[in-house]
Nucleic acid binder design. Structure first.
Lengths: 353, 353
DNA sequence: CCTATCCATGTGAGCGCTAACAAATATGGC
DNA sequence: GCCATATTTGTTAGCGCTCACATGGATAGG
């Protein structure tokens, strides 16, 4: 920084210093090919000497592009959604976009409307919705925000393109693992079935059982929270109808483990438990939880890719599926299995990444 | 929407429809008092008929305010930082601001520089830093972004204003609780001591012990992760020097519980454990974890308040302290306590909120 | 009735940038 | 050497909004 005026330098200032026109400076900034090497060097020098920074409001005004992606989300404090958000942010920044967030205060049409409006005032170029709730996606299509919308886990709704983890396949992996271990009565603690993920996981559980010629009659509905897993666990202790439980997410699985432990039901000896998500902590539950690992960051990046494509070519829609993996730890075993020894299975505890 | 032109309506269009000048419409939008009731009604009708939306790029260009707050953060997928972000978002939206995020890819000067630059290109009006790492805060003060910067937990660094939970007091609450239970040898698994929170909690642990005339010689350093808690737990099992452990966060506490359980050390009968954070899951650990509850959302909101104040009145700095609470569950008891009965202590499991 | 004061509204300029076009210069084929 | 073409650079006009100021009409005090 050599000389300094009262205000921030603008294109004109850089131009004067470099002895060119402001338009030439604009070309340099936008990587336009028709700039000679000599000019380029002069302009770049001037830019760095003045510490010039583009005024993106001015650019947005004329280009009608805000270079901003809006993220509409709920439950953003939870591991999965939060990681997805991070994936989106990374991909966006790499592509030269900003990320503006709007968290939903409640899952109501009104809240969605407010959030979308908030994003539209900013004139976001695209919207990523981290909110795997079927009904919400419907509201979105009605609102027609006028920019591309991509939803995480939208495959349940053809009207919106999106990226999702193959939830159904993940659930199948989990149940197939239990069947291989010899279980025949396998229950499912599901998330709310009006959540796309909740429905898809329940469907995977069901289809894996039916394919193996087993009954799919042990479905209990939870609400994703650890507390609901706990409450359901207390009831299960009394019933004892299943030898294994596939749980819709790791948090409910934690609640379930807590209840089982409290009532002296041993995992996996008396009952096997499989979760879904593979949070960073899941390997340290008591016992370390066998679960389905999803790559949330990749999910976020794929969503961003879809949005960027749709921005370039409005009308382009598409869907991407990310495959999950089963992470086997120590909450599953053959039914009635009883091993008093404590395996030093450190490797089984390590996380997905 | 009554008539529609090819492009989005602008002030001029609304003005024509309402039979006033564009400036009057601008006044309505900005709640300027000098607008008669009749005009107000006409303009508002026109706005809603045309579904007019302000072009914030144009406004920013002339006001030199972007109405955007930048959030610079790391570990944004973790419960604490993510909740803080949500608090910031809520407060910002209520105040009419947008929130743009920049996640740190690594804790390096380079990464911080990139992130700040990213935010500055957007011309954010203020920055909230969710990154309780002393060194980073120092880099920030060097970078002088030219807008107010508020850091979560910055009280360790006078150069930046900020809001923080009274970490030291929280640690004291935890340790005092253990002392009351009769413990005399109380260890601490600390987070990295170059993190403000890590240092403050260790300090609180130490001061509470010294006040009670006890030794503060059992400090072990972890890295906040469940895995480090686990590894440290394996070592502790051998040493058995303390009857109680105050752990720097709930994740490390989970790892510790996992290790203790694996080696047959009972909690709380053989050893008491207290955590810090009160994540939503902490009440479902085995056993449910006694921990210190922080209100992250309030923290985020307080930060926003500080930023907004500083935007109105540059130069204003300030600090806010949010008080923590101890949540007593079942991982603590008197040393050597042995109760085979299972208390149905549901209330003790419920969360902070 | 005239002027000082207020409130409601209108007018013109310009924020900093890019798009479209215009001009100037360099390059090449015959 | 001269025109056709390509390359580099400059000029002009807005994008949609707010600010500063101008104007006009009502109200009130003398």
């Amino acid at each position: 920084m050599t000389k300094s005026i009262g205000r921030a330098p603008r294109l004109e200032d850089v131009a004067k210093r470099a002895g060119v026109s402001h338009q030439t400076v604009s070309r340099v900034i936008n990587n336009h090919p028709s700039v000679s090497a000599v000019t380029l060097a002069k302009v770049e020098a001037a830019i760095s000497e003045l510490d010039y920074r583009l005024n993106s409001a001015a650019r947005s005004l004329v280009t009608r592009r805000s270079q901003t992606i809006g993220v509409l989300g709920s439950e953003l404090a939870q591991y999965g959604p939060a990681s997805t958000l991070l994936g989106v942010e990374k991909a966006a920044r790499d592509a030269g976009y900003f990320v503006s967030i709007a968290a939903l205060r409640s899952v109501s049409r009104r809240a969605i409307f407010d959030a979308i409006r908030h994003l539209m005032v900013q004139a976001v170029d695209g919207i990523v919705v981290i909110l795997p709730h079927s009904e919400t996606l419907l509201s979105l299509t009605e609102l027609k925000p006028g920019v591309p919308v991509v939803a995480v886990g939208s495959l349940g709704n053809a009207a919106v393109s999106g990226a999702m983890v193959n939830q159904k396949r993940g659930a199948q992996l989990a149940v197939e693992h239990l069947i291989e271990q010899g279980h025949r009565r396998i229950g499912h603690i599901a998330g709310p079935l009006d959540w796309i993920d909740g429905a898809a996981r329940a469907e995977g559980w069901s289809s894996a059982l039916l394919s193996a010629g087993l009954e799919d009659d042990l479905l209990i509905k939870g609400d994703w929270s650890a507390n609901s897993g706990y409450e359901i666990g207390r009831r299960l202790v009394v019933e004892r109808s299943a030898t294994a439980i596939f749980v819709g997410n790791d948090q409910m699985a934690l609640g379930l483990l807590c209840a089982l432990n409290e009532f002296g039901v041993r995992v996996p000896q008396d009952i096997s438990v499989v979760g879904f998500d593979d949070q960073p902590e899941s390997g340290f539950f008591t016992p370390p939880l066998t679960t389905v690992c999803q790559d949330f960051e990749e999910l976020g990046q794929r969503c961003m890719d879809l949005v960027l494509t749709a921005i370039e070519d409005p009308g382009a829609t598409g869907s991407v599926i990310v495959e999950p993996r089963l992470v086997i730890r120590r909450s599953t075993s053959a039914p009635g299995f009883d091993d008093k020894s404590v395996p030093a299975a450190r490797s089984a505890r390590s996380n997905c990444a």
